[in-house]
Amino acid sequence: MRIYVIGPVSNIENDNRPAFEQAARELHEALGCEVEIPHDTIKPGTGWEEAMHQSLSRLAKADAVAMLDGWTSSRGACLEFQVAEILRHYGLAEVRTVKEWLDGAPKAA
Rank of each mutant, 00 (worst) to 15 (best):
V83Y: 10
P44K: 15
G91D: 12
E29F: 05
C78K: 11
I86C: 07
L102A: 08
A64K: 04
G76E: 07
T41Q: 12
A105V: 13
G45F: 10
I86F: 00
R2C: 03
E29K: 08
G47F: 13
E50I: 15
H89M: 12
G45L: 05
L27D: 09
L56V: 04
A109G: 13
S55R: 14
N16A: 05
M67R: 00
I37S: 01
G76P: 04
S55F: 03
E29D: 15
C78A: 11
P44S: 15
A30T: 09
D15E: 15
R96D: 02
A64H: 03
E85F: 00
K61C: 10
V9I: 14
A60W: 00
T46M: 12
T46S: 02
P38K: 13
E49R: 13
I37Y: 07
A84P: 14
P106Y: 11
E50G: 00
L102K: 12
K61H: 13
L79N: 13
R88Y: 04
L56P: 09
H53D: 15
S57I: 00
K43R: 12
R96F: 13
M67P: 11
H28T: 12
K99G: 03
K107A: 08
A105E: 09
I12M: 12
K43P: 04
R96N: 08
V98H: 02
H39R: 04
C78W: 11
R17T: 12
P8N: 11
A30Q: 01
F81A: 04
G45R: 08
V98D: 05
I3V: 15
M1F: 04
G45H: 08
P18L: 00
A19V: 06
E100I: 03
A51F: 02
